[in-house]
Design a protein around this nucleic acid. Structure first.
Lengths: 200, 200
DNA sequence: ACGAACTTATAACATTTGTTCAAACTTTGG
DNA sequence: CCAAAGTTTGAACAAATGTTATAAGTTCGT
């Protein structure tokens, strides 16, 4: 059957186009993402983009979906790692994911379809993250009255986003001190050596 | 001389146009900001926008400048207030300033002139904020090894930006818990009553 | 009241955008 | 090898954009 072949190839082409769109978005911002710029980046003509994604909204939503799925997989992997907190922090410092998120969020401001998808997926992911931190905080014996999992999720994402974005722009005022302090804070819960320190 | 009269009026018109641009940007995102949309919002024709701001880059830079100046004034006022930390936090929760910042940052991704201005002004403001927090932390006896002023500035801005943006999109998962925890953290350094607590 | 400087609007421009249409090319089942 | 399905492209569309040229209106010193 023709569908089997085309189904596999089509998925690869879709992915190729999404990759190109992500690269363009990272380099030129969301407003630089056009059927033509994506096509050029993917080595393809503009109408082909619309063949796979009828409207650009469809493409943006697909990009978003792929990103959230990746984030979920990463989050689960981090939780299962020896030092979940440190792993999570390092993941958050990856400029690609963070910058894409910033662009998609800004984009969603005037694209109702994208906005709707973003809100739904983000709320879902946020709940997953909070559940993960609830378990982690319990394991570490963190005072959840003082620093609840909800705040941990927001703080982790917020701080990382600021640092990554500023670094991408060549602004590094105070970053050394902040990064060092965060490392020390994490080390309190997840010591680098094998010595434990759980004094609350 | 004619300049005196026009100077005053021109400044008012400039301000009117900047206000309109800010409103459009808040409502439709930066990509929705065009000479025509600004004109419509300001009750003026598009070319007049270019009369005051030859290119849109000029307008964006002016908007940025005005915003930073406002932020600096607000920051100084907060530091001089009875409870600087709480005042700062409430200022950061104002959706207008935060959302505008997010848009201008995204915008600067593909507008070199705006990017340059943003980096310079932000770095300057960041240094002012760090200096302010250094003094404040000294007053409060905060352990700067554990939580340096640099991290405080980044955390305050980062967390506030996440919450404000999510609220603007109708996403409030975990916000109640996070906001309550932040209030309690602030209250540790700045009690609501008149009882002092400077235990380091 | 006159003329010069300053403001504003109308009309138009070249360019870029998202998207569509029909035609060409490619694969592949029979 | 042929036809049909799937894929890719070239050409074109209306709409929107930043910007300019130009002309009309307004203000104000004299």
């Amino acid at each position: 059957m023709a569908r089997a072949r085309s189904g596999a190839r089509a998925e690869a082409k879709r992915s190729l186009i999404l990759d190109a769109a992500a690269r363009v978005m990272l380099e030129h911002g969301y407003a630089g993402v056009t059927s033509r710029s994506i096509g050029a980046e993917a080595g393809v003509q503009a109408p082909l983009v619309h063949y796979y994604f009828p409207t650009l909204d469809d493409l943006f939503v697909a990009l978003l979906q792929r990103g959230v799925e990746h984030s979920k997989r990463q989050f689960a992997a981090a939780l299962a790692s020896p030092r979940p907190l440190r792993t999570l922090w390092q993941q958050h410092l990856d400029p690609r994911g963070t910058s894409l998120t910033v662009e998609l969020v800004a984009l969603s401001n005037h694209r109702p379809a994208v906005r709707k998808a973003l809100v739904e997926m983000s709320a879902d992911f946020q709940r997953v993250q909070i559940a993960g931190f609830t378990e982690l905080w319990r394991r570490y014996g963190v005072d959840t009255e003082l620093f609840p999992p909800e705040l941990a999720v927001i703080a982790l994402g917020g701080v990382a986003r600021v640092i990554v974005r500023e670094q991408a722009m060549g602004m590094t005022v105070g970053h050394d001190a902040a990064l060092a302090a965060i490392s020390r804070l994490i080390a309190r819960l997840e010591p680098e050596d094998d010595q434990e320190d759980e004094g609350g």
